[in-house]
């Protein structure tokens, strides 16, 4: 390996800029989107009429079972003639894709709640909406948050696939720098370190949050 501090110093600002403007942006915005959408799926799957729920269940399965680069390319092919930005497509595809995983986590969390909780809500004449908001969701979240955090980290590591729709995230920036200087070691090692530096604290934070949620 040929490590050059000059190359490292030259590529680092580019990598950090791509990291902040794309990688981090997509991870944060799409994670929030996926967390909200996933909860919506989980509730709809329980509350919608059986036929509707069954159809949505199949659709979510299909989204979950196909790889994200393929989904990016497919959606991109659809909108390429319009003036929808590639980054927007990325944000939506990542949010929807991961919402299908998060929906499964929520579902497990919701199913872990004892039937007596629903019955107590009925006995108090609480509305469906209020039962979800005040009783079911807070308890389900407690069981779900740790795995939502894991999905967010998984999404973070999936962001290099944004190259499928030519969004210049960090790994693409590293590749580009290597291509023009023939020095691949520095950009890729630095990109790897940045990934680690961002995801490790997140994982620790999630564990802390998990412990906090575990105590009522």
């Amino acid at each position: 390996m040929n490590w050059s501090w000059d190359h490292a110093a030259a590529v680092l600002p580019e990598l950090l800029s791509a990291f902040l403007r794309v990688t981090l942006l997509v991870t944060i915005v799409s994670s929030i989107g996926a967390a909200v959408l996933g909860l919506v799926w989980a509730i709809v799957l329980r509350e919608a009429p059986k036929v509707v729920a069954a159809i949505i269940f199949r659709i979510l399965d299909i989204i979950r079972m196909t790889p994200i680069p393929l989904q990016l390319a497919a959606i991109w092919a659809f909108v390429i003639t319009t003036d929808v930005e590639a980054l927007t497509v990325g944000l939506i595809v990542y949010a929807v894709h991961y919402s299908t995983y998060m929906a499964e986590s929520y579902r497990a969390g919701i199913e872990s709640i004892r039937p007596g909780q629903w019955e107590a809500a009925t006995a108090l004449s609480m509305s469906k909406g209020r039962t979800w908001r005040a009783v079911i969701i807070p308890q389900a979240l407690r069981a779900t948050v740790p795995s939502l955090g894991n999905w967010a980290i998984a999404m973070f590591k999936d962001t290099p696939f944004l190259i499928m729709i030519s969004v210049p995230e960090m790994v693409t920036a590293a590749e580009k720098y290597g291509g023009s200087t023939f020095s691949y070691d520095e950009p890729f090692i630095l990109a790897g370190l940045i990934f680690l530096a961002a995801s490790y604290p997140t994982a620790v934070l999630m564990r802390k949050l998990e412990n906090r949620l575990a105590t009522y």
Partner: peptide, 13 residues
């Protein structure tokens, strides 16, 4: 109508 259950069913949150 009100009901009290064998397992209490208080909301733990």
């Amino acid at each position: 109508i009100g009901m009290v259950f064998q397992q209490f069913n208080l909301f733990p949150n």
